[in-house]
Amino acid sequence: MSDPVILIPARMAASRLPGKPLADIAGEPMITHVWRRAVEAGIGPVAVATDAPEIAQAVEAAGGVAVMTRADHASGSDRIFEALEALDPQGSHDVVVNVQGDFPTIDPRAIAAAILPLADPAVAIATLACPIRDEDEANDPNIVKVVGSPVSAGRLRALYFTRARAPWGEGPLYHHIGLYAFRRRALERFIGLAPSALEMREKLEQLRALEDGMRIDVTVVDDAPFGVDTPESLARARAVLGEPS
């Protein structure tokens, strides 16, 4: 793990909150909040991968780097791979961190912590989770849970991801945070795979990697950032970041 790069996929076509990357939060577009937090993580260069010129212009106006990609990508993983190949055709970056463009409250320390499991050469992909402390959250199918086997303090080996409450019995439950750190070769392998049966059933892309035998380890952090995908979550982000809703 010698040279990570952070890529932030962003597109305008969001069904529940169209144009959300440019939604104003405390005087600047949401995408630039995410970009700043990724820069503050301090683990490598940061770029936004987008198919929208207006998103690229907003990022560049803030001093960031944007990479234009095709508009027909099925997922953010496909988009960041295209951007990675354009930014780094020589393959200098061996780790790529995918930070969702709708996480304006993500803690930069969590972004940095995401790459830690990749110090283990057996790990192909690393991600984040936090403890679930609320019964409603535990039973909410919109909250993805990770079922994992402890590897060390604050680290799990992922065995499954699900929208159901799991695992059964006494013990902690973990809320999966959709931020991924891929080894470059793992990302290339992943996007070349067809959607898997469990992925399509649970509507969880990461199950494609597990079904293919790729190892995913999880760093446990204290809290989960919330994604902005509705007017209500946008109002919450504005309140958290200092702007009345």
Rank of each mutant, 00 (worst) to 15 (best):
residue 11 R to I: 15
residue 123 V to W: 01
residue 78 D to I: 08
residue 190 F to L: 14
residue 103 F to Q: 12
residue 5 V to H: 02
residue 89 P to V: 08
residue 105 T to M: 11
residue 127 T to A: 09
residue 100 Q to Y: 09
residue 223 D to H: 10
residue 135 E to Q: 11
residue 224 A to G: 07
residue 57 Q to V: 13
residue 14 A to S: 13
residue 175 H to A: 12
residue 120 D to K: 04
residue 86 A to T: 13
residue 200 M to A: 08
residue 230 T to Q: 06
residue 223 D to S: 12
residue 222 D to W: 04
residue 77 S to V: 11
residue 20 K to E: 14
residue 235 A to G: 15
residue 3 D to H: 07
residue 64 G to K: 00
residue 57 Q to W: 06
residue 59 V to S: 02
residue 209 A to E: 03
residue 140 D to F: 00
residue 235 A to Q: 13
residue 17 L to D: 04
residue 118 L to H: 01
residue 68 M to L: 11
residue 190 F to Y: 10
residue 25 I to A: 08
residue 52 A to Q: 05
residue 79 R to T: 15
residue 236 R to W: 07
residue 38 A to S: 15
residue 77 S to R: 08
residue 12 M to K: 12
residue 229 D to P: 05
residue 168 W to N: 15
residue 170 E to G: 09
residue 158 A to L: 06
residue 169 G to S: 14
residue 165 R to G: 10
residue 185 R to A: 14
residue 161 F to T: 07
residue 75 S to C: 09
residue 44 G to V: 02
residue 186 A to E: 01
residue 78 D to Q: 10
residue 55 I to K: 00
residue 110 A to T: 13
residue 5 V to F: 00
residue 201 R to D: 12
residue 193 L to G: 06
residue 100 Q to L: 15
residue 141 P to C: 01
residue 107 D to E: 14
residue 137 E to S: 10
residue 71 A to D: 13
residue 130 C to F: 04
residue 195 P to V: 12
residue 142 N to G: 13
residue 75 S to T: 14
residue 237 A to P: 07
residue 126 A to Q: 05
residue 210 L to S: 06
residue 184 R to H: 06
residue 222 D to M: 10
residue 233 S to Y: 02
residue 181 A to S: 04
residue 4 P to S: 09
residue 203 K to D: 13
residue 107 D to Q: 13
residue 104 P to F: 00
residue 33 H to F: 08
residue 169 G to R: 11
residue 133 R to T: 15
residue 154 G to S: 11
residue 181 A to F: 02
residue 189 R to Q: 12
residue 51 D to C: 15
residue 82 E to P: 04
residue 229 D to K: 06
residue 143 I to C: 09
residue 112 A to P: 11
residue 120 D to Y: 03
residue 157 R to A: 13
residue 223 D to Q: 10
residue 125 I to L: 03
residue 64 G to I: 04
residue 240 V to E: 10
residue 236 R to M: 11
residue 77 S to I: 10
residue 117 P to Q: 03
residue 212 D to Y: 06
